[in-house]
Write a protein that binds this DNA or RNA. Sequence first.
DNA 1: TTAACCATGTAAAGCGTTACATGATTTC
DNA 2: GAAATCATGTAACGCTTTACATGGTTAA
Lengths: 170, 170
Amino acid sequence: MFDKIVLGFLMERKMTGYAIKKTMEKSTNFFFNTSYGNIYPTLKKLEEAGHLTSEEEIKNGKLNKSYSITQSGKQVFRRWLGENSDIAMIRDEALCRLFFFSHLEKDKIIDELHSYIGRLETQAETMTKLRKKFQNYEIDSWKMKSLDFGIDYYTYMRKSFQKMLKEISE
Amino acid sequence: MFDKIVLGFLMERKMTGYAIKKTMEKSTNFFFNTSYGNIYPTLKKLEEAGHLTSEEEIKNGKLNKSYSITQSGKQVFRRWLGENSDIAMIRDEALCRLFFFSHLEKDKIIDELHSYIGRLETQAETMTKLRKKFQNYEIDSWKMKSLDFGIDYYTYMRKSFQKMLKEISE
DNA sequence: TTAACCATGTAAAGCGTTACATGATTTC
DNA sequence: GAAATCATGTAACGCTTTACATGGTTAA
C-alpha cells in the first residue's frame, strides 16, 4: 500500500524522496508515516516498473533527485483508489492492554488511563494547530476532511477512555 | 507485542497454540489476530526463554501440546501491562484513500463510501452478536469493556463516513 | 465418503524499521 | 565552530503472513 501513497503524492507535483517524507510528517503522520529506508527503495522500484521517471539536479550544492509520475503510474494509482478497502483492525496497543486489565491493580489502571488520555488530548491539539496552518494554504477539501477526521477520531478515543476511567473511579 | 498477548491468554489457563488462535478469532479479532506461523514459533521462543513450560498429551488420537505460564512469564507480562501505550497511528486503508479522493470521480467516491459503510455496519453487528454470546459465560469485565469499545468504535466510524457521504451527496 | 475441523509445525517471502554511511549547507 | 537541517542511500534485522507439509477425527 505504501507505494500507492507515494504515487498519490506525486499525482500533484514532482517531488524528491526527502520532500515526500517531510510532507508525510506534516500531513499523513496521524494515519500513515514511514522511514527513508522505505521511501528510497520504493521510489527506485516504482521507477524500474516504469511508473515514475527521475531527474537529478544540483541545488545549493546538494543532489536533488526529483520523481515524476508517468501515465502508467497514474493508472496504477487510480485503479488502487477505486478499490474497496478492507475493514481495518484497530491494532491499538492501549486496547490490547485494556483487554488484560483484570491482571493489573486498580491504581495502576487509573494511572495508565490518565496518561493515555493526556496523550490523546495532546494529539488532538497538535492536529488542531496543524489544521489552522493548513487553512492559510489552498488545501484540497479531501485532505482537509482527512485531517478533520483525525481530530474527531482522537477526540472520540479520548472520550471513550475518559468514560472508562470514570466508570472504574466510582 | 504479540508475545505479550500470548502470555496474557496463558495467565488465565494453560492452552495449546491452536486454542490460542481460536480464542483470538472469537475475542480479540477486531483489534488483534495472527497466524499459526506466528503463534507456534512464538510459543517455542517463550518456552526457551523460560517464560512457559509445555506438556504433551494424546487427546482423541491427536497430539495436544499445552503451554503453562511460569513465574518469570507472569512477571514479564505484568511489567508490559503496566507500561505506557504509544498513541496508535490509524493506518486505515479507507482513510488513506480518502486523503487522495480529489483524484477520484464523485460517483466512484459515493460507491466506495457506500460499500465501506455497509462493511462497517456488518462488523458492528457481528460484534454485537458476539457480545450476546459472551453474556452467557462468565467473562471478565475488562474483556467485556474491550468488546463494547470495539462495537462503539465501528459504530462511530460508520457515522463518520456516513456524515462525509451526506456532505458530498448534497 | 468427503468435507470440515483438530492439531502442529517449517520455510520462504514480504514489508518496514533502525542503524549505518556520507557529505553539503545553513543557522545560531 | 557547533548543531541543525538538507539530502540520498544501503544493510541488517525483526516481525508477520502465506504457502507448504502432515495426519488424525468428526459430522453431514
